[in-house]
Amino acid sequence: MSWVRRQPLLAFGLLLVILQVGGAILAPWIAPYDPVAQDIMARLKGPSAEHWLGTDQFGRDLLSRILHGYGHSMLVSAGSVALALVTGGTLGVLAAYMGGWMDRVVMRCMDILFAFPIILLAIGIIAVLGPRDSTTALAIGIVYMPIFARLLRGPALVLASSDFVAGARVLGASHSRVLFRHILPNLASVILVQASISLSTAILVEASLSFLGLGTQPPSPSLGRMLAEGRSFLLLSPFASLFSGMAILMASLGFNLVGDALRDLLDPRLRGE
């Protein structure tokens, strides 16, 4: 376990990610209560042996709702990043490889998407399609597309003009073989790092949309929604907002630490410092 001493931030980030992803997956079995079950007699209770993190304004167990809320948040965030990676990354690599008019058209479309603030564009898409988990993932995926397109286009341009790619073309390799055997494998580290960091910010965007009432709809548990609902009871019982906010922070922090550590490990310029 010497790597833990060399990379303490990576170890801590991985620990946070594993605990939270594990909690989200195992929530149906380890959550002490039904996340939507109400107990009016126990509303706005503080942490106790019966309810470890307390209850909300409807008497619902906060720990159970946070565990299930992790599931919704992780699923939406992972789906949006996967969509952005597949669509935006593919467009960016193809634009770099093909060049010419395709490169100009694709990148101008990405510039148009970049011109809109992330939250405003996501709100516009959700307003048209309706607020639910699938449209939230689609909206975040669309606003993240230009990030992956631009990020992968740069190194793909360098690889497309490299000697080993030129040699593969001279030997008669097809475009698909050059892309999948020579270019994409050399972009794996860039993809891995950006996906980790994008997951961190996607969790914050999903929580922001849920906070505004545009994400996961009640009574399904959502971390951002819990944070919003708890605002009205901060003086009576701040635990709903406090613990849901901490859950959002820890989820984002875990993926951010993993992404930063992976960047340091995989970037040869930083390894040499």
Rank of each mutant, 00 (worst) to 15 (best):
M1A: 14
W3D: 06
R5P: 02
Q7P: 00
L10A: 15
A11Q: 07
L15C: 11
A24L: 02
I25Y: 01
I25T: 08
A31H: 07
D39I: 12
H51L: 01
W52N: 00
F58D: 11
G59E: 07
G59Q: 01
D61E: 11
L62F: 08
G69P: 06
Y70H: 12
M74W: 15
A84D: 00
T87L: 15
L91I: 05
V93E: 04
M98V: 14
M107S: 12
D111C: 08
I119P: 12
I123R: 10
I125K: 01
A127W: 02
G130K: 07
S134L: 15
L152C: 03
D163S: 15
A166Y: 06
R169V: 04
V170T: 13
L171H: 09
H182A: 08
H182L: 10
S189W: 00
L192C: 13
L199I: 06
T201V: 15
I203L: 14
F211Q: 10
L212V: 06
Q217A: 06
P218C: 04
P219E: 01
P221K: 07
S232A: 15
L234Y: 00
A240V: 14
G245D: 02
L253V: 13
F255K: 01
D260Y: 02
L262K: 04
L265E: 07
P268V: 12
